[in-house]
Design a protein around this nucleic acid. Structure first.
Lengths: 267, 267
DNA sequence: TGGCCTCTGTACGTTAGCGTACTTATGGCA
DNA sequence: TGCCATAAGTACGCTAACGTACAGAGGCCA
């Protein structure tokens, strides 16, 4: 069954750039196809290209023991290879194409060259890196504490956003691998979501039936991820230092109260 | 009982700088004492100061649901507030002083000002950020897959390195909080380590008796963390792009076969 | 049409860790 | 000296997820 996707052939980070900077990047990029299953980077190895997905999307996998754990997804809202801006050219994660589609790709050398010339690009990418780190932390906590069903719901929603489609092609085995659980665990969770009429699936084709319901069934991490993205990258171009203070209505004091009180009493 | 600590009143990142840059930073820093239990940052709130620990050390806590999970430790090998170099001034983590001791502290404004002037400082900090991200990923995986006993062993070793002492002052309740498990879980694990004569403890005082044995009992994450640090920051000052390629002898091919096969074989 | 491979459902027993509650030690302090 | 708060040990049932194994079901191709 071939699902049609409303693929936006754009990348949000590139869109945020002003004309001149964007053009310079684009003329150095090549259009290409990402094919599901392709390994773009290997953890610890060199980063040959930077990818700005326009249609496809990519999983970030951290090696653990003799397997892997997914810690992030990159779609047309982001960029793969972001750590190059830190001056280190080896990939911290394995990057695996998760959804077939298009991307713009540029060699590491060209990328670094353009980066030096465009303060604006640098700005946007730094913020995206901040967002990536935050989402990484979110995933860490999520993976530790949340139940498989909620995590699965989250994964489906995140993937839906990046695939720009309610149809996702993936098997339970593969999902199990991403979530770091048994295939049986996925089957059970998926079944439960199906019973609740939030999704339907068969032989590798999953359809999201009720976005809001799925969001309710997911852990809060889906929302949290979106919020941090919007907060930091929603209005790129504005100064961030000094401007985004106090977003979450943080408590005014920074003494060791609160965490403190509770903790201090037992130190 | 008061343990004496061999506290090195230096910070490895600062030590890596050349005289001039280091001096400029130091003259803008104030020496201060970190007291156990102090909350230096709150996740989501502004970052008022950057801290270079010289003696004390600090936990990085990610908020999750209504609790927290420790995702990193910062001692005199690192710096707290590193994300400022990304141009975002809100803290991604809550920062809690874990070990009493000294630190050098500088206001965010001064820090950013000096940062602009010293390419070398910038370089070192970018690399440290890369290391932080990698260690974050390591913690995520560790937290998900490894047993409490191994994680406890890892935590003790990491803390030992940062406290520069075999004696650690911390209770089971507190450890449970850091590791995201029940106090009873810590008690059991600690007991087991004690039976194996790797540590001994009583009422909040833990002593590491056998470093190597503890390392063997810990999950590989302790080693992995050290390796990534040494690899990226071991020889600061040398160009890293293009220089650290191929470290882990990565396999040459990147086709989609491979993963497919590779994935399926382990599922 | 039959065979086969892949995907999904189900069914064990096992285990690490959970929540809770109660007990026992220990050290500081009145 | 005795009290008391805090630290650590123990016990109980419970649950999510584990490892494994096998059975049905769907699609593909000979």
């Amino acid at each position: 069954m071939a699902f049609t996707q409303a693929v936006p052939a754009t990348n949000r980070l590139l869109d945020a750039l002003h004309h001149k900077d964007r053009e310079q990047l684009l003329t150095n990029c090549e259009h290409m196809e990402l094919n599901i299953g392709e390994v773009l980077y290997r953890a610890g190895a060199a980063i040959p290209h930077v990818y700005f997905p326009t249609g496809g999307f990519i999983s970030l996998l951290a090696p653990v023991d003799s397997s892997n754990l997914e810690l992030g997804l990159v779609g047309n809202e982001g960029v793969l290879g972001i750590t190059l801006i830190l001056g280190v050219d080896s990939a911290p994660f394995t990057a695996l194409v998760q959804g077939t589609g298009t991307a713009l790709r540029i060699t590491t050398a060209s990328f670094l060259h353009i980066l030096e010339q465009s303060a604006e690009l640098h700005q946007v990418l730094k913020r995206y890196l901040y967002v990536s780190m935050s989402q990484l932390a979110q995933s860490a906590a999520c993976t530790r504490f949340h139940l498989v069903e909620g995590r699965l719901a989250r994964w489906l929603l995140m993937t839906k956003d990046r695939a720009h489609s309610d149809h996702i092609h993936i098997t339970h085995v593969f999902l199990a691998y991403m979530l770091g659980v048994r295939r049986v665990g996925v089957t059970k969770a998926a079944n439960s979501l199906q019973q609740q009429k939030l999704i339907s699936y068969q032989r590798g084709d999953i359809t999201i039936l009720d976005h809001d319901g799925l969001e309710a069934a997911s852990c809060g991490c889906y929302q949290a991820d979106k919020e941090i993205y919007e907060r930091i990258l929603g209005r790129v171009g504005q100064p961030s230092v000094g401007a985004m203070t106090g977003f979450r209505t943080p408590p005014p004091l920074q003494t060791s109260r609160e965490v403190g009180d509770w903790l201090l009493r037992r130190l």
